[in-house]
Design a protein around this nucleic acid. Structure first.
Length: 581
DNA sequence: GGTCGGGGCGCG
DNA sequence: AAAGCGCGCCCCGACC
């Protein structure tokens, strides 16, 4: 084993496969138990015989301490939460399932084919266990259990095959980085779920009471404030002063459920107001006495239903909010979440996110990330020069008559495919002054309209168009064609921004481990697309801030290589999340 | 009784 | 000011 660690920057020992898979989650999860390990070379070849480990947690911890190890396993999500609960921490891994998703997207496999029984012949000879059969590591599935050694063989073969396919990428270094970062992201997400975001239930409860009135006894009952607003809304319909057909009918007695768009549309129509929808943007311009209480109702009802007392009961325990993150859950590479709406927490509720006594929150968000990513991607000299400075939009304002707001609209329209209002005109300016930047997103849009796929800077591939889309767009350009163009146009930017943020996150994670503090280790507690929150002892705040800066610089260098585009972070050290920015 | 699509809105 | 992109989750109402 000693010679295996001679190069500390390259993964050298690759080990695999528990034979006693732990239950993936939940309280009362059994011990991780024993496992089977096999050391591998950098190219995935076996370096020795598989060795059993009676205590997998201990064996992993021991090898982790001994030096640089990259663990190879079928999926971190199936094993690492239990490992982490048992106290083990792993720096690096190769997540075969996440890697396979990236590779299949690249190679144009129809994702729907996974569901069919159609085999992927190139993956393995017939008769061998297929690593991606759903039951391989699922002891709950009926049928004979596979032998651990068979599972290990399948894993090692699949891993070696993946390394070959990664190496065959047009940009193998970047694609390997993507696989490594995606895998490390799975580790970080499991740790974040375990740690949880500090959450003050008392502050949350007080906020709800202030906004909604006292908590109602029944879960189904409306809080006092909502009940009163609902009454006002019902009363406002049919009670209008000036007449009109049917106006004299006593309709005020008919309750209108403000949660029902259909009932609202009907009630407005009865008062002579025909609406396309009951959306906020539409209602704002409507002159009717029901509108004011309705807008207030919508805002408060959302708070109550999505983040009210029952949310508090369900998701906060022991002073922490523990959401489940889904790595690979968004096509662009951003994380999704399952349960608790972790990535849609209303800004109002950030009041409840408070550091523990003696600790602080270090909140960092990447400023103007997406336009900066476009600048780095496109290699547009003039655009990149502007992106070297602090406020990108301000730097671009000169091209738009000195109007920063126009520069922003032009950029957002270019990245999102908007063309309404004066956007078209501003886009023309953008195209003239920054042809490479405009050309980059327009080429992506064209690819989408023609049914091709596009890739992020690290090589994440967007899903191919569906058969339904192909049928729909075979003959003529229509709304579906343009929608697909907007999707791929946005994908190259959003997914590349997600690449950068993910690399930044995992780089930060590694650096936080190096910070020693008497009062405990710094905790990564939240990650939302382009924003990260670290909970740390107050005396570690300086070191954490420095680690953030270095992580951002490393992400920029690894993802984009040499570029003059800057990716500044806004960093705030606060006691309460609401006080950041 | 359940499921599912749409409308709507929170976040980036 | 809103719009163009990506999500999750709530409620309603149609449907089985």
């Amino acid at each position: 084993m000693p010679e295996a660690r001679r190069n500390s920057t390259v993964p050298d020992a690759r080990s695999a496969a528990p034979d006693e898979p732990a239950a993936p989650d939940g309280p009362g999860s059994p011990e991780v138990g024993s496992g089977l390990l096999c050391e591998l070379d950098e190219d995935g070849e076996r370096r020795g015989r598989p060795v059993p480990a009676d205590d997998l947690v201990a064996a992993i911890a021991e090898r982790e301490l001994a030096g640089h190890v990259r663990w190879v396993w079928q999926a971190a999500v199936g094993l690492y939460p239990a490992l982490a609960r048992a106290g083990a921490r792993v720096a690096r891994c190769h997540d075969v399932a996440l890697a396979e998703a990236l590779l299949r997207a690249r190679d144009g496999a129809d994702p729907a084919a996974d569901d069919a029984s159609a085999q992927q012949p190139r993956l393995r000879p017939a008769g061998q266990p297929t690593l991606f059969e759903p039951d391989l590591f699922e002891p709950t599935q009926p049928g004979p259990r596979r032998e651990p050694s068979q599972m290990l063989d399948a894993l090692i073969e699949a891993h070696a095959d993946q390394l070959r396919r990664i190496a065959a990428d047009p940009d193998p270094v970047r694609f390997a980085l993507l696989v490594a970062a995606e895998s490390a992201g799975a580790l970080a997400s499991a740790e974040m779920s375990l740690t949880g975001l500090p959450w003050r239930s008392d502050v949350h409860d007080a906020l709800l009471t202030e906004q909604l009135g006292p908590r109602p006894a029944g879960a189904a009952a409306r809080p006092p404030k909502l009940a009163e607003l609902a009454r006002q809304i019902s009363a406002a319909f049919g009670a209008g002063g000036d007449g009109g057909p049917g106006r004299h009918r006593a309709r005020a007695a008919t309750p209108v459920n403000p949660d029902s768009p259909a009932q609202l549309l009907k009630a407005f129509a009865a008062d002579g107001i025909r609406l396309s929808s009951t959306r906020l943007a539409v209602l704002r311009d409507v002159d009717h006495p029901a509108v004011a209480p309705l807008l207030e109702y919508k805002e408060l009802a959302r708070l109550h239903s999505a983040f009210g007392w029952s949310w508090l009961d369900a998701w906060v325990s022991g002073g922490r909010f523990r959401p489940e993150y889904v790595v690979g859950g968004v096509v662009s590479g951003r994380w999704a979440s399952r349960g608790g709406g972790a990535l849609q927490i209303p800004r109002l509720l950030r009041r409840a996110v408070v550091a523990e006594p003696g600790w602080v929150l270090v909140v960092a968000d990447a400023a103007q990330l997406e336009p900066r990513v476009l600048a780095a991607l496109a290699g547009d000299r003039a655009f990149a020069t502007a992106a070297a400075a602090g406020d990108l939009y301000a730097e671009l304002a000169g091209a738009f008559g000195g109007d920063r707001a126009k520069a922003k609209v032009a950029l957002l329209s270019a990245m999102y495919g908007g063309a309404g209002g004066e956007a078209g005109q501003l886009l023309a300016v953008l195209r003239r002054r920054f042809p490479a930047a405009a050309g980059y997103v327009e080429a992506a849009a064209r690819a989408g309209e023609e049914g091709r796929v596009v890739r992020s800077v690290l090589g994440r591939t967007c899903p191919p168009p569906t058969a339904a889309w192909r049928a729909l767009t075979a003959d003529a350009v229509g709304p579906a064609t343009r929608a697909r163009g907007r999707f791929t146009r946005n994908f190259v930017v959003q997914a590349s921004a997600a690449d950068w943020a993910l690399v930044m996150l995992v780089s930060l994670r590694a650096r936080l481990w190096q910070i020693k503090s008497q009062n405990g280790p710094s905790e990564l507690v939240f990650f939302q697309h382009d924003e990260v929150v670290v909970h740390c002892p107050a005396e570690a705040a300086g070191a954490v801030s420095a680690a953030l800066t270095v992580a951002a610089e490393e992400a920029t260098r690894l993802v984009f290589g040499p570029t003059q585009v800057a990716f500044p972070l806004h960093v705030a050290v606060v006691g309460c999340y609401a006080d950041a920015k």
